[in-house]
Simulated assay, not measured.
Amino acid sequence: MRPRLVLSMLILTAFAVGCAPQPVFRQLPVELAPPPQVVSAEPARHRGGEVLWGGTVVAVHNQARHSEIEVLAYPLDRGQRPQTGHGQQGRFIALLPGYVEAADFPSGTAVTVTGRITGAREGRIGDHAYTWPEVSVRGLQRWTGDGRRPPRVHFGIGVGIRR
Rank of each mutant, 00 (worst) to 15 (best):
I11R: 11
V100D: 03
D104I: 08
H46A: 01
T109G: 03
V39I: 15
P133G: 04
T144L: 12
F155T: 10
G18M: 05
E50L: 07
I161Q: 13
P21M: 05
L72K: 13
E31L: 09
G139I: 09
T84M: 00
E122D: 10
E134K: 12
P29S: 14
G48K: 07
G126H: 07
T13S: 08
G126M: 04
S136C: 09
R162W: 12
R47E: 04
I93Q: 01
V60D: 05
P97K: 08
P29N: 14
R65N: 06
R78Q: 06
S40R: 07
E101T: 14
L96N: 10
A94M: 00
E50T: 12
V60Q: 06
A73T: 01
C19I: 10
S8P: 02
Q141S: 06
V57L: 05
P35R: 04
L12H: 08
S67V: 11
E42D: 12
V24H: 02
T109W: 04
G158M: 06
A64Y: 12
T112I: 02
V111E: 00
P106I: 04
R163Q: 14
P36S: 09
D77N: 10
E101L: 12
R163E: 15
P75C: 09
G156V: 04
R152T: 07
V159Y: 10
H46N: 00
L28W: 08
R142D: 01
A129Y: 11
V17P: 14
W53I: 01
N62V: 14
G119N: 03
M1G: 15
P82A: 05
P36W: 00
T144C: 09
T114N: 04
P23Y: 00
T56R: 02
E50K: 09
L7R: 12
W143L: 03
A120C: 09
L32W: 04
G79L: 00
V24W: 03
V57I: 08
G158H: 05
P34R: 12
G54N: 05
Q63V: 13
H61L: 04
G85S: 01
D146P: 07
G98Y: 03
A120S: 15
P21K: 05
I69D: 02
V6N: 12
I93R: 02
C19N: 15
A110M: 03
V71P: 01
R45T: 15
G147W: 01
T13A: 11
R138C: 10
R149E: 15
A14H: 11
G139H: 13
D104F: 10
G126F: 06
R45G: 13
G119K: 03
V153Y: 05
L96P: 05
P36L: 05
Q83S: 00
Y74N: 00
I157R: 15
V39R: 09
Y99M: 12
G123K: 11
I69A: 07
I125M: 09
Y99G: 08
L12P: 05
A64Q: 13
I93Y: 00
P106A: 08
T112E: 00
G55K: 00
T118M: 07
R2M: 11
Y99L: 12
P43M: 06
R162Y: 11
P151C: 01
F25V: 10
R65C: 01
I157A: 14
H128D: 15
A64P: 01
Y74H: 06
A59G: 11
G158T: 08
T56Q: 02
L76M: 03
A41I: 09
A20W: 15
